[in-house]
Amino acid sequence: MTTARRHALVTGASRGIGAAVAAELAAAGHAVAVHCHAATAAARAVADALPGDGHTVVSGDLADPDQAAAVLTAAVTALGTVDVLVNNAGIYTEQPITSTSYADWQAAWRRVIDVNLHGPAQLTWCLVDHLMYRPQGPRGARIINIGSRGAYRGEPDAPAYGASKAAVHALTQSLAQSLAPHGITVTAVAPGFVATELAEPMLTGPDGDAIRAQSPYGRVADPSDIAAAVAWLASDRAEWAGGAVLDLNGASHLR
């Protein structure tokens, strides 16, 4: 790998973990493409607040194969190339099996798998296609997937989410083996609860104290806790982590 400036695409980066990852990578010197599905104003605010220059905003529904390809093309066009891909965009929906209609059950599974699994798989293919044919080649690139503790601990009220994240972990390890010979390192992180907008209703509700008590630290993660690990995995020194799924759950679930 060279010491030239790196170029990162972070999906789902208009808030939460994605926004924190974008900030951490920008602080490390990356030019960052901040992706959102449709919240372009929020994504622009994140991009404008990043240290350094050359950042951009890209948008699109990554569950749609054509839009996923267009997102990667837009990022490459704006940044010149993409060396680091952080597949963070995802959705969480609850569908308890005993109280969800068959139609709603099917719809939830399709949408969650399309966003959480097909989206990263499609965007990763597009990135690898770009890397293999760019003048400097693919060596030194990084792909980092955001999985979940729920893949191991279980998601009884959101089984599609848990299954999608388990599949993301498996995708990570499969691609780590196939892409390592080309110099592309693929890793994942598996966070537990993180203090984001999406988690706020649970954390401020009646179950908040019990959720925090799951960790012996007595708290949930801050997005910056996840972003710091992602930034290390994106660095030159993380090549030997290829295939790793790094647990980031504050010792709330050990395996």
Score class of each variant (00 low, 15 high):
Arg134Glu: 06
Arg111Phe: 06
Arg44Tyr: 06
Val86Gly: 04
Pro135Ala: 12
Ala89Ser: 12
Gln95Trp: 07
Gly52His: 00
Ala45Asn: 10
Leu123Val: 15
Cys36Val: 01
Ala74His: 14
Ala28Gln: 11
Cys36Asp: 05
Val58Gln: 03
Asp83Glu: 09
Val86Thr: 02
Ile97Asn: 08
Gln95Pro: 03
Ala33Gly: 07
Asp104His: 13
Ala74Arg: 15
Trp105Asp: 03
Pro135Val: 11
Asp83Thr: 15
Glu24Thr: 12
Val58His: 05
Asp83Phe: 07
Pro135Gln: 11
Gly137Trp: 14
Tyr92Ser: 10
Ile113Arg: 00
Asp61Thr: 12
Ser99Thr: 15
Arg111Asn: 09
Gln67Glu: 15
Asp129Asn: 12
Val112Arg: 03
Thr56Leu: 09
Thr73Ile: 09
Arg110Cys: 02
Ser99Trp: 09
Ala49His: 15
Ala47Tyr: 04
Val76Gly: 08
Ala41Asp: 15
Pro138His: 13
Ala121Pro: 02
Gly12Phe: 04
Gly12Ile: 04
Ile91Gly: 07
Asp53Phe: 02
Pro51Leu: 11
Asp129His: 13
Trp105Tyr: 12
Asp61Arg: 14
Ala108Trp: 05
Ala89Thr: 09
Ile91Trp: 10
Ser99Asp: 11
Gln136Ile: 10
Leu117Asp: 01
Gly140Arg: 10
Ala74Tyr: 12
Thr11Asp: 05
Val82Tyr: 05
Asp66Tyr: 07
Tyr92Met: 10
Val58Met: 09
Val115Arg: 08
Gly137His: 13
Val82Asp: 05
Ala31Leu: 06
Leu50Arg: 08
Ala13Asn: 01
Ala69Tyr: 10
Thr81Ala: 14
Cys126Pro: 02
Val21Tyr: 03
Pro120Arg: 06
